[in-house]
Amino acid sequence: MISMKELAQHCGVSVATVSKALNDQNDIGESTKNKIKKAAVKLGYYPNAAARSLKTNRSYNIGVLFVDEANSGLTHEYFAAVLEGFKVEAEKQGYDITFINRQIGTQKVSYYDHCKYRNVDGVVIACVNFDNPEVIDLLAGDIPVVTVDHIHENCSSVLSDNIKGIQSLMEYVYENGHRRIAYIHGQMNTAVTKARLTSYYRFMESNDLHIPDRYVLEADYLDVSQAMAYTRELLDRKDPPTCILYPDDTALIGGLNEIRARNLRVPEDISIVGYDGSRISQLLNPKLTTIRQDTAAIGMQAAKKLISTIEKPKTTFTEQIIVEGELLKGESVGKANI
């Protein structure tokens, strides 16, 4: 890695001219500017982070607040993929990433204080309890924030199109003759679940489909044992469903285990659908019918929006960015046997 002075000597210009070229100032010619930029790339020049921070009053460091209630951490396939998309775009625009927590060494601190300690320019918040007072304080503070899969009035959010996702699943299930459609959904305290559940009820209502009591059940996301228990309850009914929707592809495995324990076949005896389009969903036998969420696009859009909010606060709107998913028809939905 070379210094700015060495880059200037190589190009036969002053250090000031190099600085102006690399900062896209208009008082030098385009040919000179392009020559310096090409030389910087060729010779491996990178601006000193401390110097750049002093000049721009930014750290070029973004905080990531990710607290998974299921304690799966970065093995959480959906959010890990979203964060990878976020990381790729942030690094492309010259930003580093720091994970935010409640601790500095052995000292307990708030999320907000940790952000201040790390001097982050902004924070992306994903997969947390948004009713947590510390999260509320961070959202109400002076640090730019973008949320993933959660809507908050103080900041922009990036969300998968959960309404359209459930609608697409329901339409496909309905086209295959299913009318007794049960739904084991995720926790009700999330915007994701509320959107999906509303879409389910709306579809059932618009098609004049009756929903028996206890056909709609709440389970934790990624919880295989709860999904298994509720599948058992549904299958023990006098009017069991012909199709069951699950909160995610992982939880669905619990339902699949219960179905097979009864010597029932998917999809010949009962149909099942998941959500997320995880890698495992297409490795199972049969392949799952599910919604593949565009995790790379969700992460990329979150990074773009947050960096725009950091760099152009006066001209960046607070908005909800919706990213569409894709219906994977798989092999787990068959013709209804009614």
Score class of each variant (00 low, 15 high):
Y183D: 00
D121I: 08
V323D: 00
T290A: 02
K194M: 10
D131C: 07
N285Q: 13
R265N: 11
S157I: 06
E89K: 05
C127N: 15
G254Y: 07
L209Q: 11
E84Q: 14
V216F: 01
A227N: 15
A297S: 13
P212C: 03
S31G: 10
D68C: 08
E171L: 06
K238C: 07
A261M: 13
T316V: 02
K116C: 15
R52E: 03
G141R: 12
M204R: 09
R180C: 05
L306Q: 01
A227S: 15
Q187S: 10
R262N: 12
H150E: 04
D68Y: 09
N337Q: 15
V67I: 11
R265D: 06
G177K: 12
H114K: 13
L284S: 02
Y117H: 15
L264N: 11
V18H: 09
I338V: 14
L65P: 07
I291P: 01
N285S: 14
I259C: 10
L252K: 01
N119V: 01
V64L: 12
K312D: 09
K92L: 13
R265K: 11
Y46G: 04
H178G: 09
A40Q: 04
Q9W: 09
A8C: 12
G63V: 10
R196E: 03
V41F: 07
E89M: 10
T56I: 06
L234M: 06
Q167E: 14
E69M: 03
V146P: 05
K329M: 10
S271D: 03
S156Q: 02
H10A: 11
I181G: 08
R279T: 13
A195G: 01
S14M: 09
T290R: 01
K38P: 00
V146E: 06
A16E: 13
T231Q: 13
D223M: 04
Q93V: 06
E153P: 03
K164D: 12
I181P: 11
L235I: 11
S225F: 11
K116Q: 15
A195Q: 15
P313L: 02
V124T: 12
T290W: 02
N119H: 08
S281L: 03
S14W: 10
S160P: 09
D121H: 04
M4P: 02
G63K: 07
A39V: 04
